[in-house]
């Protein structure tokens, strides 16, 4: 998209300094160093800008920008709201147990979804202001799941080739080393992907469809917990971002397609390991339904719901994205 759009955004945002992070077909994502209206809270903020499209009839264009800005904002709020409600339900049940109220724990056992929180919006110009969710990996890259996996995959490959040059490739020692490497790799990744799967399950149970699930749209944030003794391997909590193509739907078809899109994305970005990755994500997905069933003492209905979606996912895999075309 042209420089003109960036300049337009800058001109509409007064004194806010913007740094472009990414650009899609529809929107540009900027990073700003200040809160749009609460100066005492200076925190990095994401500004998502939907520029006007010159090819559209102006009345229609404004309508679309407004509607999409509002819709995306509503969805991220819905996820926040639903997570809080789930958490409150749980809180009612637990008696005197000390509950970690930090937002990060809305996930996992609490049936919530981690995503950016809405700070502000300007539907007339197509701006959404929200939390900036990011961390940095050891190699300086942003902590998307994609980058994290690539880093681990590369480390694995390097370490493997190192081991293989030391030992004779055919020796038993070598194969044991390989096994050990694989197991080590798996344990680091599996938990992360299961956590991601749980969140997707929670999200679908709120009837929200992400619409664009890829490993770039899942960000890992470091989580400091007393249990984590390993400084080299911080605990990561996955966050879902980029709800630009999201919608609200209770249809099994939509949820199955949502998962299928992730499967395909994993296949093309992480071709060697995607089968395992998908498997673990789906394990987490199923776990989310089980845990919800347990929380509400309604194990069976949730199991049934999950099975419906899983079966539909199998059907979607067979036919590809689309129903077959008629002439």
């Amino acid at each position: 998209m042209s420089v003109a759009n960036i300049e337009k955004a800058e001109s509409l945002l007064g004194d806010i300094k913007l740094k472009k992070i990414s650009q899609g077909a529809e929107a540009i994502i900027f990073l700003a160093n200040e809160h749009p209206y609460s100066n005492e809270r200076n925190c990095p903020t994401i500004v998502k800008y939907r520029p006007r499209k010159l090819y559209r009839y102006p009345v229609l264009d404004l309508q679309i920008v407004k509607q999409r800005t509002a819709s995306e904002s509503r969805i991220i709020f819905k996820l926040f709201q639903s997570s809080v409600i789930e958490f409150n339900k749980l809180e009612k049940k637990k008696n005197s147990e000390k509950i970690d109220r930090s937002l990060v724990n809305y996930v996992i056992n609490n049936g919530g979804v981690n995503c950016p929180k809405l700070i502000g919006l300007d539907v007339y110009n197509g701006f959404i202001f929200m939390d900036y969710i990011n961390d940095t990996l050891v190699n300086g890259e942003s902590s998307s799941l994609k980058n994290h996996l690539w880093l681990l995959e590369k480390t694995f490959a390097d370490s493997l080739s190192e081991k293989l040059t030391v030992h004779n490739c055919q020796s038993i020692v070598a194969s044991r080393e390989i096994e050990r490497e694989v197991v080590a790799l798996n344990s680091k990744i599996k938990d992360l992907l299961v956590l991601t799967g749980i969140q997707l399950g929670n999200m679908h149970m709120f009837d929200v469809i992400h619409g664009d699930l890829t490993s770039s749209n899942i960000i890992l944030k470091k989580y400091d917990s007393e249990n984590n003794n390993d400084e080299l391997q911080p605990l990561y909590i996955p966050y879902l971002i980029d709800f630009g193509l999201s919608s609200q739907s209770s249809l099994t078809e939509d949820k199955a397609v949502d998962l299928y899109v992730l499967e395909k994305a994993l296949e093309s970005t992480h071709p060697l390991f995607s089968k395992d990755y998908s498997k673990w994500v789906l394990e987490g997905y199923e776990l989310a339904y089980e845990m919800k069933g347990k929380r509400e003492n309604a194990a069976k209905p949730y199991r049934v719901k999950h099975r419906e979606i899983y079966k539909r996912l199998e059907a979607v895999r067979l036919r590809g994205r689309k129903r077959s075309m008629i002439g």
């Binding site: 926040f80 809080v84 409150n88 937002l103 700070i119 919006l121």
Partner: peptide, 24 residues
Amino acid sequence: GDMMVEDREVLSRLLVSVLQLSDL
């Protein structure tokens, strides 16, 4: 209603979202 929280930080965020989205 069910959304109510006692944590002022979280509450502030909730209210801010509600206000930004009202009357759209």
